[in-house]
Design a protein around this nucleic acid. Structure first.
Length: 576
RNA sequence: GUUUGCGUAGCUCAGCAGGAUAGAGCGUCCGCCUCCUAAGCGGAAGGCCAGCGGUUCGAAUCCGCUCGCGAACACCA
């Protein structure tokens, strides 16, 4: 049901403007009392040579508006305000939500289309810190959002598993590696010897040569070196997968840089054949002046490939394998230029699908007065953050549980704490526009009040509790139209309005690759619901009719919150 | 230096294909648990939307300049 286009069509008929133009002018009034849609008459003032308020009065008085279903028009100053019939609105939105359940917000706009989302992409043998969480969480959410809209999503983890650093690691491992420690805690051990390598390298330059040699052997496929590399890679993946599993996500493809490195030479040859390679300061580059970007290096002066070459190989591969409709890179904003160059090279080489590649950037995670640095060790591991959040959540639950006389078992508390704690962390990454930097603070990460995941999950759990009690009393949410139609109070209506906007928020989130469009919407729903909840009794409502109608509203809110939270990568709990 | 992003309440952020009194959350102050979970709700205080100029009937929103902060800018990824 699209009221806006109906209004636009009718206004077009009356004003003589194009329907599309009217559609764009229609806005949503800042106050509820002003109605649901508004048409400003300023633009008509010139052509009609009349004051806007007069035009508004004329339009509002036009009898052709009467044919609009469930809508009434009223002129207020220079605006024509439209009011949707609340009963009609309530029935429509709640009905469609209850039919969809927690699938609410789905759409089939993406049917038959493949979307690739590349995200997370950690470097193997390196610790997974709270900075990596940004791409991981945003990417996961985008994958879910596109899936909801009917797209076939391919989740790709473009692992950082290639480069001279692995030559260093091999050298370091042979000199100082501890097999037991490696098995115990692979990343920590690998990081230890990696840091040691850099320290020793300053004193003993021969280490550099050894590392270079080992990397060369690795590239040439020498058995021992490849076996070691593979071991590091596999062990890292086990650690990462544990983390991914804990956060409820999995990938379809782990092809890392090493995978595409094999194809990079072909890319260079292809570009050469097309006559796009130019020599510059010893390197082979593609000039991109016509795109307004600096040249892109394809072959370094020593003749080897570079990450841009591998990224181009990856695009070619992905197009061939998945024939993508969209190829999304969830990679930090500092790499914007790199992607612009890569996409431009593709474009210049005549691959039009370069236009379907998009870099979705995000901000930095940083400390207040300190830089984040793996080498200096001043990082916060994502795992530590999750543990901390879960532990604090458990404290809160235990406190509340005692105070409320609940009888939760230790297992139940653990399970709830895990979901709420992780949800709280995830939410801090998706509550604002993704290009904003996040200044890491424990205080904020562990804040469970206000605009946070626990607040949303709490709202959900409270509703579930009501629904359980209702069932015990033999009460079921209303499903009949005439029963739902009594939900017309201001507070009920406010909730319904925000519920109705949810599917649009999902589409906007996809169109702008911004998960926060969803977090913002469900936060609004929860706030409106909590206001209603605090002022109107549900199970103790005046009449049976009111009880079941409100129960239907409760269920609709629960479904929508669950749907929205899931799109962010956050689960729900039935009680907390 | 070049390119680019940002500057909205004490703090963290929405709003920016121009429109009706600039909105949330946190923090502060004041209230609300004999009734569905107070991780909740209500109220108050708090803003020359960085500054200046321009376009417009109308600008936080569009354009230009200035100031302040950050990022990227060739053989790392």
């Amino acid at each position: 049901m699209d009221y806006k286009s109906e209004i636009a069509a009718k206004l077009a008929e009356i004003t003589g403007l194009e329907s599309e133009q009217v559609y764009k002018l229609i806005e949503i009034p800042p106050q509820v009392e002003m109605g649901d849609f508004a048409f400003p008459c300023f633009t008509l003032a010139k052509t009609l040579r009349k004051a806007p308020p007069m035009i508004a009065a004329d339009i509002a008085g036009d009898e052709r508006l009467a044919s609009l279903d469930a809508l009434t028009a009223k002129n207020v100053g220079p605006y024509v305000n439209f009011f949707i019939d609340r009963s009609y609105y309530a029935v429509n939105t709640i009905d469609s939500i209850l039919k969809a359940g927690d699938d609410y917000g789905f759409d089939n706009e993406g049917e038959g289309k493949n979307v690739i989302v590349e995200y997370s992409s950690p470097n193997i043998a390196k610790p997974f810190h709270v900075g990596h969480a940004f791409t991981t969480i945003i990417g996961n959410s985008l994958a879910k959002i596109y899936t909801k809209l009917g797209y076939n999503v391919i989740r790709m983890n473009h692992l950082g598993d290639y480069g001279t650093q692995f030559g260093k690691l091999i050298t370091a491992y042979r000199l100082w590696g501890d097999e037991n420690a490696l098995n115990e805690d692979p990343i920590t051990e690998l990081l230890r010897i990696y840091v040691k390598f850099h320290e020793e390298e300053k004193k003993d330059p021969s280490l550099t040569d050894s590392a270079r040699e080992n990397f060369k052997k690795l590239e040439d496929g020498c058995e021992e070196e490849v076996a070691l590399w593979k071991k590091f890679r596999d062990m890292s993946l086990v650690v990462f997968d544990k983390l991914y599993k804990r956060m409820g996500m999995e990938f379809d493809n782990y092809n890392g840089e090493s995978y595409y490195a094999k194809m990079a030479d072909d890319v260079a040859n292809m570009l050469k054949e097309k006559g796009l390679l130019v020599e510059s300061e010893g390197a082979q580059v593609v000039d991109l002046e016509e795109y307004g970007v600096p040249p892109c290096i394809i072959l370094k002066s020593d003749g080897t490939t570079i990450y841009a070459t591998r990224d181009i190989a990856a695009i070619l591969y992905r197009h061939e394998t998945y024939n993508f409709d969209k190829n999304i890179y969830v990679v930090g904003t500092p790499q914007a230029l790199h992607f612009k160059q890569v996409f431009s090279v593709m474009k210049k080489a005549g691959f039009d699908y370069a236009d379907n590649c998009v870099h979705v950037g995000f901000g930095l995670v940083k400390f207040k007065n300190m830089k984040f640095s793996t080498r200096d060790g001043n990082i916060v591991l994502l795992e530590d953050l999750l543990n901390e959040a879960v532990a604090k959540t458990r404290e809160v639950i235990e406190e509340n549980s005692k105070a409320r006389g609940q009888d939760m078992t230790a297992e139940q508390i653990d399970e709830i704490a895990e979901k709420v704690g992780i949800g709280a962390v995830i939410y801090t990454y998706v509550k604002s526009g993704r290009e904003r930097d996040i200044v890491f603070s424990w205080e904020e990460m562990l804040d469970f009040e206000g605009d946070t995941a626990p607040y949303l999950m709490y709202t959900y759990a409270r509703i579930k509790s009501i629904l359980r009690k209702a069932a015990e009393q033999g009460l079921a949410p209303a499903s009949e139209e005439d029963k739902i139609s009594i939900l017309t109070s201001d507070e009920e209506y406010n909730v319904i309005r925000t519920l109705a906007d949810f599917p649009d928020a999902v589409k906007k989130a996809a169109a702008s690759n911004e998960p926060f469009m969803i977090s913002r919407q469900i936060a609004l729903i929860a706030r409106n619901f909590n206001r209603f909840y605090n002022n109107s009794s549900i199970l103790n409502a005046d009449s049976e009719e009111q009880k079941v109608a409100r129960l239907a509203l409760c269920e609709a809110v629960a479904d929508t919150l669950k749907s929205g939270l899931d799109l962010l990568g956050i689960g729900v709990v039935e009680r907390m």
